[in-house]
Design a protein around this nucleic acid. Sequence first.
RNA 1: GCCGGUGUAGCUCAGUUGGCCAGAGCAGCUGAUUUGUAAUCAGCUGGUCGGGGGUUCGAAUCCCUCCACCGGCUCCA
Length: 647
Amino acid sequence: MIHITLPDGSVKQVEKGTTALDVAKSISEGLARNVLAAKVNGQVIDATRPFDADATLQLLTWNDTEGKSTMWHSSAHLMAEALEFFYPGIKLAIGPPIANGFYYDVDFMEYSISEKDLEKIELKMKELAKEKNLFVRQEISKAEAIAYFTEKQDPYKIELLENLEDGNITFYTQGNFTDLCRGPHIPDTGFIKAVKLTAIAGAYWRGDEKNKQLTRIYGVTFPKQAELVEHLEKLEEAKRRDHRKLGKELELFTFSQKVGQGLPLWLPKGAALRERLENFLKRAQRKAGYDQVITPHIGSKELYVTSGHFAKYGADSFQPIGTPYEGEEFMLKPMNCPHHCEIYKSKPRSYKDLPVRFAEFGTVYRYEQSGELHGLTRVRGFTQDDAHIFCTQDQVKDEFKKVIDLVLYIFKTLKFENFKAQISLRDKENPTKYIGSDENWEKAENAIIEAAAEKDLPTVVEYGEAAFYGPKLDFMVQDALGREWQLGTIQVDYNLPERFELEYTGADNQKHRPVMIHRAPFGSMERFVAVLLEHCAGDFPLWLSTEQYAILPISENYNEYAEKLSELLNNYDIRGFVDDRNEKVGKKIRDAEMKKIPFMLVVGEKEAEGNLVSVRQRGAGDLGSMDVESFAEIVRKAIEEELSSNV
RNA sequence: GCCGGUGUAGCUCAGUUGGCCAGAGCAGCUGAUUUGUAAUCAGCUGGUCGGGGGUUCGAAUCCCUCCACCGGCUCCA
């Protein structure tokens, strides 16, 4: 007899050879029907594997991330079985589970496949799922495995096998399909009740663009049809919130083929929104001791040779601009830091001056591959809310904390409640990858870790993710749909101060090298606006709305009164317009709602006579009628509340 | 850049066994209506069918090529 310890601490005494599924059955049949896999001694394995010694056991169901990924992994096998049915002779590469489903990379040989084919594959998968075929695990020698795939003429599996150790190789078989696979898998295909193949795309073998491009089919499966429906609804919602769609509808930005791809054009309303965000940040930065600077959009090629960026990125950048006669070369600036370094150097600095903080909404241009461009989140020209802090090594931690405060203030004000900070540190195994002294790195990394801890940031630490010039802290926010985006960043840089020979005079009257911190709380205005748009689905907070109210006269007879009101509200610094079109008020309300205007002010005879406005708030409905001062007070209070989230 | 898909009016979309002047709704304009909390009615304007080339008596529709966009891959100072 052996002992199996469950998560609640209870211990089951069972025969050797008992499986996790048996244990589940002994608890309840219902549970057993939901068990997808088992976590035994911390390792996820098939629920059908027999125990041969004492162990801890956690039964994994659809409610566990590992349960889901096990099912999706099995779904990839199921899809492969269906694919082999329709397209015999195809070569299979890899088919893993991913965050939201699974995919399989397939070399379709002479077959061609398009989205139209997905439906029949789904049907076949459902048909095979109904057969409740068991996933059978089989240990196999490397030689036998290679022989199997040689027979099957699958070069990808053979390549995978070549990198595997003999004695550690397993096959899994369900129905008519056998695959090289480490496992684990769900007990049988019957758990898969709902199937949706979502996309078909190209993907390189082993992610290397020098390799052959395979066809990747993405899919997702569920244990219940209802969950698939829910999933599809979520996708619809994401589509509805897509910043490209909202940006067009709300007339915020556009693109022109003639101007060039990836070069956003900000329309009046978008520009007003952006200006408001910039002013918001400028105000906060002024308070935090930043000095605003302005630098040109191009810089001499020498500048980037000095910074080292030309050597690293020059070939993949917009190419230098030449002057007509002298043959001088200038680059479109891909970042602002070299310019800011030169500002630092414009006069001698003393330790008493530090930290120096130069801020600039700096527009930069980077060549992105055409297939990479995406709405406002990936463009070729964008504006960073950039700043560079020049300080002593001892000031790094404090400066980090101040920047973290700034970022938190922004997140709080704009209601990004779910976020995390990723701390990217060195890969210590690979010291030659980094510049700067070990001692300074150690200090900087600790400073970041401590700063994050003291600010109670939810953090994940990634080793080996640091830039070659210094460690960094990136903020990832979740939008309303739980999708993750990288926004703000804070980076320590030992490289540029060295290359630009920056110095300050210390208390010891000796020259010292300052540390540089790059930081951008929004990241870029383009990306931030995109994420904000999706986060709030276009319903901007009042203080950010370009049009805070629309005055809707009942008929043309009240247009004059409406104009008078509008002037009055202008005196209160409340922005809006009069909808004096010859339309019924219902139509005007509808249009104002579609334009996401926070307040609609209906005026007719009653209001004109009593010097009142009838206020209707987006989302909240009719607030009744009141005088202008009361309305202005409502607006003032609402904005104060929105902006008061001091950290 | 690569693989796959898409491209018809300002917007959303019909229109492919190749065939009469290419359609609708919304937006816009004109007129009527003078309106009370999510679409008043009527008329009108508007299209090199993404660009170029080809096949054909005839091309939005078939072929070639280029461009842009969408979904991925690779990349991201």
